[in-house]
Amino acid sequence: MARVIDLGEFGDGFRRDPHPVYTRLRELGPVHRVRLGAPDAHQETWLVVGHEEARAALADPRLAKDAEKIGIRFLDEELIGKYLLAADPPQHTRLRGLITRAFTMRRVEELRPRIQEITDSLLAEMLPRGRADLVESLAYPLPITVICELLGVPEMDRAEFRKISTEAVAPTSADSEYDAFVKLAEYLTELIEDRRCAGPSGDLLSDLIRTTAEDGDRLSPQELRGMAFILLIAGHETTVNLITNGVHALLTHPDQLAALRADMSLLDGAVEETLRFEGPVENATFRYAAEPLEIAGTPIAQGEPVMIGLTAADRDPARFPDPDRFDLHRDTRGHLAFGHGIHYCLGAPLARLEARTAIRTLLERAPGLTLDGPPGEWLPGMLMRGVRSLPVRW
């Protein structure tokens, strides 16, 4: 039996800064049996912390995303329906093919002026105040506005949707997680019906309702709900954290901030280094061994869960020298912040576009930007990596 490492024993410090723990684990080996901390205490899984091993595992077809293959059905799938992150080929291939017909690179690029317009409007409201919580004033409202407009979510629903979605991806308890998914399922069902009745209107959800493959295949009502769920959740929760983590990293590394201010051509490097250094997703969602296999010589029994550490892998010194240094000039190619393989994040181009726009415009219009106190608490759980608030002044 492999030794089980109880991550809960590292206390709240692990939530605030998991990197020293991941460093210790990598030094012991690339794969470990761990017991998760709150709110998932007592759940055991294999955790992959090495970069090479994580990259290979993300693309390994023997590690299934569909837990039904091993006889498990989870709360989100029961209430929401099957979605991309919980599907394997050929189902995943079919679903991804249908959504990519509607969610194209051209569509993302067409959003560029609107993203700039929203950013300008938010900063026009924020900057006269002299200080603000960056999350509430910019990092949250920008991506939620973009994805809600893209999908046709009414403006009056967005505040409530934010509260529900945050609880779903970073639950504070099992009961609150269940309630959040019940509310999400009810809301998405109503939203899809509203968009269906409204007829063609140019938004992505309306297009998904009417998208038809060459063989006449279309998304079922349950699949539409699952698609709307993953687009709404992944389309804003991760980008909130990307923007916030990027600004926080720059403000706590003044030499890098000065370099960026002096040369805005480094902006792409700043976003990519943020993704590597403090990416918005700490660990990929669970995979399950569809058959017995080995990862770096460690035997994994059929049916066992495997968690792939994106944060841990992206600080592996075997791939990124001096990994705890935030460096805009670093070659970040190969980072795993958006995953790898067939489950590579569909929304990565949109997230990058929003982060570049937000950070560039903020720095240009707030030359005296600095921290105005410590950040808020880090999100619970081991899925999302971000803070609830970031006080800044200028």
Rank of each mutant, 00 (worst) to 15 (best):
H51L: 00
D175P: 03
G97D: 07
A124K: 09
D215L: 09
R35Q: 13
S265Y: 05
I300G: 02
V387P: 04
W46L: 01
L231K: 05
E377R: 11
K69V: 15
A54Y: 01
E160S: 14
I308S: 02
G339L: 03
D263R: 04
L28Y: 08
D12W: 11
L379F: 14
A67Q: 06
L134N: 02
P375E: 00
T104C: 01
E68H: 13
P141G: 06
P367Q: 05
Y140M: 14
T274C: 10
V392H: 08
P221R: 01
E304S: 12
H248A: 15
F277H: 13
A185P: 00
R35G: 14
S220C: 03
R131D: 15
E223A: 10
R114W: 10
I164L: 12
S201L: 07
L346Y: 12
I118A: 02
A262W: 03
E53A: 05
E52N: 09
A290G: 15
L363M: 11
G37V: 01
L350P: 00
D215R: 09
Q302R: 11
L95E: 08
A358Y: 05
G269W: 00
R365Q: 07
A258K: 05
D255W: 12
E77V: 11
C197H: 07
P254T: 09
R114V: 10
R33L: 15
T298C: 04
P349Y: 11
H19P: 03
P299R: 07
S173Q: 01
P380W: 00
A301N: 03
E77S: 11
R356G: 15
T244G: 10
Q302T: 11
A198N: 09
D120S: 06
V182W: 11
G368T: 05
K163F: 10
I115A: 15
F161Y: 06
G152E: 02
Q256P: 08
I308G: 01
A139P: 01
A86H: 13
P349H: 09
A198T: 07
R96D: 11
T238R: 01
A168Y: 04
A132F: 08
R62I: 07
G269A: 07
P280G: 06
E291I: 09
V153N: 11
E109H: 08
R73I: 14
I209S: 02
C345K: 00
F181E: 02
D133K: 03
G334Y: 04
R330M: 02
E77T: 14
V49A: 00
L204M: 07
L242S: 02
L266F: 08
G202F: 10
G226N: 12
R107H: 09
T274P: 01
V387D: 05
Q43Y: 06
A262D: 09
R106H: 12
L25A: 06
P254L: 07
E109L: 14
L63H: 12
A102V: 13
A258S: 11
H329G: 11
T166M: 15
A228L: 04
